[in-house]
Amino acid sequence: MPQFSIGHRDYPTKKDARETIRAILHGYPVGSTVDNEEHHLLLLDLLDMHPRAEDKIGPGVEAFAIAPPQRGPHPGFRVIRTDGTPIDFSYLECLQPRTYRQQVLNVMGDEVKQTKTDYFESRRAAGTLRSDSSGQLLDTANTAVSYFQGPSFNEIATEFAESLGGWEAIELTSSAEKGLGRFVDRDLAQRWFDHHHSRAVFGLLTQQESLRRPRS
């Protein structure tokens, strides 16, 4: 059966995903903040799929709001960034086919995801499960491994791609459309892993602190 994904969420079709987003959009009054945490998390993953996601996210997402109609009768989504600046985005643009850069970024993240798990386990074993931002005591259900103390994941990935001459230099297996592919060249995959390991500076945050950081 055809499937469409937003973050870790799978939908039978793109139409089903679109209807889920529309239900959120029309479930809040114009001008209100999206205050349901699951809706907020879904919109964060949706925004990551926008072709100009980095520009829309800016310094980080504080909240989402419902913007009044700009063209036509329908409202839209507005990002309220952590510096207080607002910017609107089209959810329909987010649902367009992923660019090759977005596909590669998804695969890069999958190739190194174990490093974040290993970091968390090392902190738990050391008994240092506290937020590196606020000092708050953490539990396993309220902990996020973040790049907030160094370059973001996107910055590290872009450095690597540029060192090869661009994103097209990284060939992916055919399953990359859903972000579940792999590097075809496994030696290149190891080079990416080593580059990421040398540049990534992890830290721990609460889930809420992490939500308000730039996406990585």
Rank of each mutant, 00 (worst) to 15 (best):
A176Y: 02
D185V: 03
F193G: 00
F193P: 08
E168D: 15
G165L: 12
G166R: 02
D187C: 02
R182Q: 15
S175K: 15
S175C: 03
D187Q: 14
S175G: 10
G166W: 13
G179R: 03
W167P: 12
R191H: 10
G165N: 04
S175T: 11
E177N: 13
R182F: 09
E168Q: 11
E168F: 07
G181S: 02
D187G: 04
L164H: 13
L188T: 09
L172F: 10
A189R: 14
L172A: 00
W192R: 03
I170P: 13
E168S: 14
T173Q: 03
L172E: 03
A176L: 06
I170Q: 05
R182W: 09
E171V: 11
E162G: 02
R182D: 12
E171P: 08
T173R: 01
I170T: 03
T173H: 12
T173P: 14
L188W: 11
D187P: 05
L172Y: 07
E162S: 13
E171C: 08
S163F: 05
R186H: 04
R182T: 08
T173S: 14
K178C: 03
R186C: 00
G179K: 01
I170R: 01
S174F: 00
G179D: 01
L164G: 06
F193V: 07
S174R: 10
D187V: 14
L188A: 07
G179F: 00
L180A: 13
D187I: 09
G165Y: 06
E162V: 05
E171R: 15
T173D: 05
G181M: 04
D185W: 04
I170V: 13
E177K: 11
R186E: 12
G179Q: 02
E162A: 06
D185P: 00
S163H: 05
A189V: 11
W167Y: 08
W167I: 02
S174D: 06
F193I: 10
K178N: 11
F193H: 06
